Amino acid sequence: EPSQADLDALLSAVRDNRLSIEQAVTLLTPSSGGGSGGGSMDAKEILTRFKDGGLDRAAAQALLAGRTPA
């Protein structure tokens, strides 16, 4: 399960175009075949909204942490 520091680094990389959204989703869902963790939004949607400015960093982190299976 990614830590808050991992999520923060991942969000920074996506925002700075050092990591594509697809690459980030793969890192967030290493063994689930890329499927959502059952959250209301999947990781790709969360990351896309964050990059487009629709979500701030704290909200994106909380959503990603919340949808990651324990």
Rank of each mutant, 00 (worst) to 15 (best):
E1M: 13
E1S: 14
P2W: 15
S3Q: 10
S3R: 08
S3K: 08
Q4L: 14
Q4G: 12
A5P: 14
A5K: 07
D6W: 15
D6G: 09
D6C: 15
L7Y: 06
L7I: 11
D8V: 06
A9K: 08
A9N: 06
A9F: 10
L10M: 05
L10W: 04
L10T: 03
L10N: 00
S12F: 05
S12R: 10
A13W: 06
A13R: 05
A13Q: 05
A13S: 04
V14E: 00
R15L: 11
R15A: 12
R15K: 12
D16F: 06
N17G: 15
N17H: 06
N17C: 05
L19Q: 02
L19I: 15
L19D: 01
S20R: 03
S20Q: 03
I21V: 07
I21S: 00
I21F: 02
I21H: 01
E22S: 07
E22H: 05
Q23V: 06
Q23S: 07
A24E: 00
A24M: 03
A24C: 05
V25A: 08
V25Y: 05
T26I: 14
T26S: 13
T26L: 15
T26N: 13
T26F: 11
L27N: 03
L28K: 01
L28M: 05
L28C: 04
L28Q: 01
T29Y: 13
T29L: 09
P30W: 15
P30M: 12
P30D: 05
S31N: 11
S31W: 14
S31K: 11
S32K: 09
S32Q: 11
S32N: 14
S32D: 13
S32G: 12
S32P: 09
G33L: 12
G33F: 13
G33S: 11
G33E: 09
G33N: 11
G34Y: 03
G34A: 13
G34R: 07
G35F: 05
G35H: 13
G35E: 12
G35Y: 03
S36W: 14
G37F: 14
G37M: 13
G37A: 08
G39I: 13
G39T: 10
S40I: 11
M41H: 06
M41P: 10
D42L: 11
D42S: 13
A43F: 15
A43G: 04
A43K: 05
A43C: 09
K44V: 09
K44M: 07
K44N: 06
K44I: 08
K44T: 09
I46T: 03
I46H: 01
I46A: 02
L47S: 00
L47N: 00
T48E: 07
T48P: 00
R49T: 03
R49V: 04
R49C: 08
F50P: 00
K51M: 06
K51E: 01
D52W: 09
D52E: 14
D52G: 10
G53N: 04
G53M: 03
G53E: 03
G54Y: 14
G54A: 10
G54N: 15
G54E: 14
L55N: 01
L55F: 04
L55H: 02
D56C: 06
D56H: 04
A58T: 07
Q61D: 03
A62H: 08
A62M: 11
L63A: 06
L63M: 12
L63T: 02
L63F: 04
L64S: 00
L64Y: 01
L64V: 02
L64A: 01
A65K: 11
G66D: 08
G66M: 08
G66Y: 08
R67I: 14
R67C: 09
R67H: 05
R67G: 05
T68V: 08
P69E: 13
A70G: 13
A70S: 09
A70Q: 04
A70L: 02
